[in-house]
Amino acid sequence: MKQALLSICAAALGLTMAGQASAASTLETVKARGKLVCGVSLATPGFAAPDDKGRMQGFDADICRSIAAAVFGDGDKVEFVPTNINTRFQALQSGEIDVLSRQTTHTFSRDASLGLDFGPTVFYDGQGLMVPKSLGVSSAKELTEAAICTLPGTTTAQNISDFFRAINGKFELVVFESPDENRAAFYSGRCEAITSDRSDLASIRAVANNPADYIVLPETISKEPLAPAFRQNDSQWGDIVSWSVWLLMAAEEKGITQANVDEKLKSEDPDVQRMLGATEELGKMLGLDNKWGYNVIKSVGNYGEVFERNVGEGTKLGLTRGPNALWNAGGMIYSPPIR
């Protein structure tokens, strides 16, 4: 709490002091600083959490790395700033961070009223509900009158309220600031169900004593397209963020991986040549090195690799690709043509 207040004060102070953020373009600022400052979550395994060597690991962290690689040719020129869920937008507005890559849902009111813009969706998520199997419930609609635990974060409280209003059912909402208390209350039976984004439910289930005792109900009660955000009115910077993300997706489509990117430089495919900067000068149009595409893939791999490494079936979260598969494999991951 105290930390939240402090960071809000710092952000407020930043707003009062710093008007210079809008003076120089973000790209110039980042280049002059020599590193990208990227806002991530405090500790969310799979999305952004330091490993035992202190290196930030996770899906969101790798998005930061891909942008740094596009700008500097080196994915490690990133300073990760853990942002609080309440102050993340202020941190971006005040210029404390250059990009916010923090499981942030792209919504209308955020886009329109917070002085920021969103890049392409990097992860299609949705709010779900998890219950113990022993409850004998197979649909969220059967949960009227139940107690439901949740975190105050994002719009989960509003979504679950909307869901039950739509089916005209009452329920008891218990909101926790601390994820640990939230989990403990659910596992002890204080609440019949727990609600959060499906990816988050997967990580909550992963730490249960016996994960097989719990099921995630089929309903997805909200759309949560997670996307990186950047300050409004800087379209050059916005293009760099967006195309760094799209490049990851295009690379998967073309079968370019971290391992074979050097061979692919000699590929005959004109699309691949353009993406990796072997021909034409696409990078320069963004104000970047012409090898930007090569650098991005060399440091983090393609979208599929980023997904599998951090949240895929081989990890603790064990998520399937689902809607996050490529468009030609039944998913929604689709990049505009890089040409």
């Binding site: 809000i8 102050t87 202020q90 994002t154 719009t155």
Partner: peptide, 8 residues
């Protein structure tokens, strides 16, 4: 705050 973004 989370819903409106108007922290200040």
């Amino acid at each position: 705050m989370n819903q409106t973004g108007q922290a200040i």
